[in-house]
């Protein structure tokens, strides 16, 4: 099939950008979306043009490196997929496809479709961990964990930190990302000692990075490639209230 692409091109973070149109011919429906961009880039390179910069690494939906806004939707159409798992069979011959980078103030565009997501690392630094220095651990089975809690913690922990929640959120909030980590660690007995300080510190960092607030619209959870549920945000809100109530 033949596709028309409108792609956001921006040489670097200081330069202005704009949408640029490209034609891609003979696209196979078995191609992934990124492989289709690879094909375009091969052509651009041969023609001596600057290939389109975009992030991707594992290309199997787990590293969280890729992320494009396709036709206005983070990770494009389709439920529970990352951009790298999106295949061209989701599109039809003659389609015009818009491709843009994640947009949010804390996610500076570095070049074309590549953005800076280091703010996510700083949110984790603020408290998204359990303090367990190497060597201090007790025997693993000395801490039984209720299976339902363990499963729920796992569901939350599947977040890949791709940033689709922010890209999709009309408020530019990273609440879902943060809530997933708060829930993962807060559901486990090992995470209890730091539960209150963790959530307050992470929320403060989230705000300091310049992310917006949550208005419970649910676009984040609809865009999330791992199906992280919005009730985790409510859970985080409860944790914040409980932390404030128990402040010493």
């Amino acid at each position: 099939m033949n596709i028309t692409l409108r792609v956001w091109r921006q040489p670097d973070s200081d330069a202005p950008g704009k949408m640029h149109t490209y034609q891609v011919a003979d696209v196979s429906e078995d191609m992934s979306f990124l492989e289709m961009l690879d094909v375009l880039n091969e052509q651009l390179t041969i023609d001596g043009e600057d290939p389109i910069a975009f992030d991707s690494d594992c290309r199997e939906g787990i590293c969280g490196m890729c992320g494009l806004v396709i036709n206005g939707l983070a990770h494009g159409p389709g439920k529970n997929v990352t951009t790298c798992q999106l295949h061209m069979r989701s599109f039809a011959d003659g389609d015009v496809i818009d491709v843009e980078p994640w947009r949010a103030e804390p996610f500076t565009v570095i070049k074309d479709l590549v953005v800076d997501r280091s703010s996510f690392d700083r949110i984790i630094q603020a408290g998204g961990y359990i303090t367990a220095p190497t060597g201090t651990a007790p025997e693993a089975n000395s801490i039984p964990v209720n299976k339902a809690d363990a499963d729920a913690a796992f569901d939350a922990a599947t977040c890949i930190g791709c940033g689709a929640c922010v890209a999709a959120c009309p408020n530019g909030s990273a609440s879902l990302f943060m809530a997933a980590k708060v829930a993962h660690l807060g559901l486990l007995p090992q995470g209890q000692p730091e539960r209150h300080s963790r959530v307050l510190d992470m929320v403060d960092q989230h705000d300091a990075e310049g992310f917006g607030g949550c208005t419970q619209i649910g676009e984040c959870t609809a865009a999330c490639p791992k199906g992280i549920q919005i009730d985790l945000i409510s859970r985080m809100d409860r944790d914040v209230l409980s932390a404030i109530a128990h402040r010493k």
């Binding site: 409108r6 806004v69 206005g72 818009d98 999709a168 676009e219 609809a222």
Partner: peptide
């Protein structure tokens, strides 16, 4: 976003 194809988002 520049794209006008999903002004209503996914589900809002």
């Amino acid at each position: 976003y520049e794209s006008t194809k999903a002004r209503r988002g996914n589900q809002r």
